[in-house]
Design a protein around this nucleic acid. Structure first.
Lengths: 337, 337
DNA sequence: CTGAAAGCGCTTACAG
DNA sequence: CTGAAAGCGCTTACAG
């Protein structure tokens, strides 16, 4: 490909001049501008982004660091989150680099990405990468809270414990005394948060939830998340004691409802169902319409990106933001007689 | 941040040696390797990706060029496609740069991205960008066929015309003589392809489809795609003449089914429904289970990425690949008495 | 308004 | 096994 040097020579000017024509950072005479542009067109010249980035030490790219599960499928939550990130970055002229590469332990492999900042999904406990980014001087925003908490780290998150606590109270208020909780997989911090919130609500009423009613998703066990809901109900209904099911997502609830139809269980007459989920459209369209929690994943993404963009302009900025989850009452929960 | 120069000086070696320690491109003695690594750790040195890319003229990044609709929401098809691209790229050590930036007409704005190749979604008619990438010497793979056809351009696609033709024949075989077609928005080439395939099937039987039964999605008219299905049925049932509805996606079908429930229309007793869609999980979970076309969007993505990776190693490679769509018979279509 | 030259942080023949 | 130096393709003070 043609370089800035080729254009400069053919147009009889210096590289600096060509550079200025494209960047408009200093004024170039009309005549020269036109000559340069026409030569550039002839030669098929386009400025080299990488060289430019090296010179100005900016790439106008935001990194999105997310683990990809073995089955390679993104959850609806992740998708909406990403959507929010993309939208906000795009509004500000940033591109998004998706980094789903499995992490190598050899630090030699850990090269800095060509990004001006990064958004990291699902940080782990004592996540070593956080310290690494700060060493590299790369602005970082987490989606999900740092563990342990750290006032110097920017993040956005839902309050999952509070949310589960509220869902628990809602069901208790309806008269339910025993639930089946089809939680996310055990290795996610959100699972622990939810379980603790739900348990707390029950404990406050002097009740407890037996361990066999607290189920975690296992990738090896289920082909899909709706399958998880379907088989969980099939295998436990009538055996375990519960009048309501709390599911990880609306997709899981989909499977629960299918199983209920097959077993002749009336929802919400015989069984209440509620999802700790986020895809409002789907919940609306189900029959009966699904009572669920709206996590606003897209808002999380937008907020994370917005904070990152601020940090990329002023590294000293720190923001921690909790996005409210709201319980949307639809048709799948009913009070016990 | 520390640079290779800092490490070299502190370790008392040359930059070339430090470089080799990290790249392992030439053997470095055990003793020196350890010294360099320890200094690097002390200084918090990580190789600069941008500088490295400039030197080796490779970024190990694949670009994914996709327009983002005004509402900023990706369709399920796009999501699955992206999923496929990510998975395949990730397998081969590539990262993915999402470029959703609106295109500028000023060629000065059109800087080359820091990518080794690009996958472009939904190419337009006589898309100028195709020529541009070839000028820049950047390997390109389209998702969707080039228009006009060009044997030198690599792409993957479904055969949408054939698919619609087959769906038409299936319904005709069941005895349906009039359909309502809730197509995608009119500006997509896939919409035209489908309409022509469906029309052809009807014409072969000496039948035609009245224009008012051929509907296109309008973003300004509907808040969501399921809303599109819902209102289309509500507004036309009993007014227009049809015994079957063909929908763009399963989401649209969701809305159609909801409207049918509210109107007391039995599916498939009174009305058949079929979706030209791709999210098999959802179709399975609906009640009744939705008859639909499986487009294998993820396979399209995987294939596109796979071809791109080949091209990035040998630019002369050209592959054109049509991914089969398959009609999955479930419960929402029935033959007329 | 324009040019010459140093610099961004790496890699890689070429020598030894 | 290691070093010195040129080069990747830009940008940007400094001068004029």
């Amino acid at each position: 490909m043609a370089t800035i040097d080729d254009v400069a020579k053919h147009a009889g000017v210096s590289k600096g001049t060509v550079s200025s024509v494209f960047s408009k950072k200093r004024p170039i005479s009309q005549a020269v501008t036109e000559r340069v542009l026409s030569v550039a067109r002839e030669l098929g010249y386009y400025p080299n982004h990488v060289a430019r980035s090296l010179a100005i030490k900016k790439t106008m790219i935001a990194g999105l660091k997310m683990p990809i599960s073995k089955d390679g499928v993104m959850s609806q939550f992740e998708i909406q989150m990403i959507n929010g990130v993309i939208r906000e970055c795009s509004r500000h002229g940033y591109r998004v680099l998706l980094d789903t590469l499995p992490e190598h332990d050899d630090p030699r492999q850990f090269s800095s990405d060509p990004v001006d900042g990064v958004i990291m999904l699902n940080p782990r406990k004592n996540d070593a990468r956080i310290e690494r980014y700060s060493q590299m001087g790369i602005p970082l925003v987490l989606v999900g809270r740092p563990d342990p908490m750290d006032p110097t780290i920017s993040y956005v998150d839902n309050d999952n414990k509070l949310m589960a606590y509220q869902v628990g109270n809602y069901l208790l208020q309806l008269g339910h005394r025993s639930v089946l909780f089809l939680n996310a997989s055990a290795d996610m911090t959100v699972s622990a948060d939810r379980q603790s919130g739900l348990t707390e609500a029950f404990n406050e009423q002097g009740l407890s939830i037996p361990p066999e009613n607290l189920v975690n998703f296992l990738r090896k066990l289920h082909v899909s998340v709706s399958d998880y809901g379907y088989h969980s109900l099939m295998n436990t209904y009538g055996k375990l004691n519960y009048t309501a099911v709390i599911t990880d997502t609306d997709r899981v609830a989909l499977g629960v409802l299918r199983a209920a139809r097959e077993l002749g269980i009336d929802v919400p007459g015989d069984l209440s169902v509620i999802a700790l989920s986020n895809d409002a459209t789907l919940a609306q369209e189900m029959s009966p319409k699904l009572t669920s929690v709206e996590l606003s994943a897209e808002v999380l993404g937008t907020q994370a990106a917005s904070i990152l963009i601020q940090k990329m302009n002023d590294a000293s900025i720190v923001k921690q933001h909790v996005v409210d989850a709201k319980l949307v009452y639809r048709e799948t929960c009913r009070s016990l007689p």
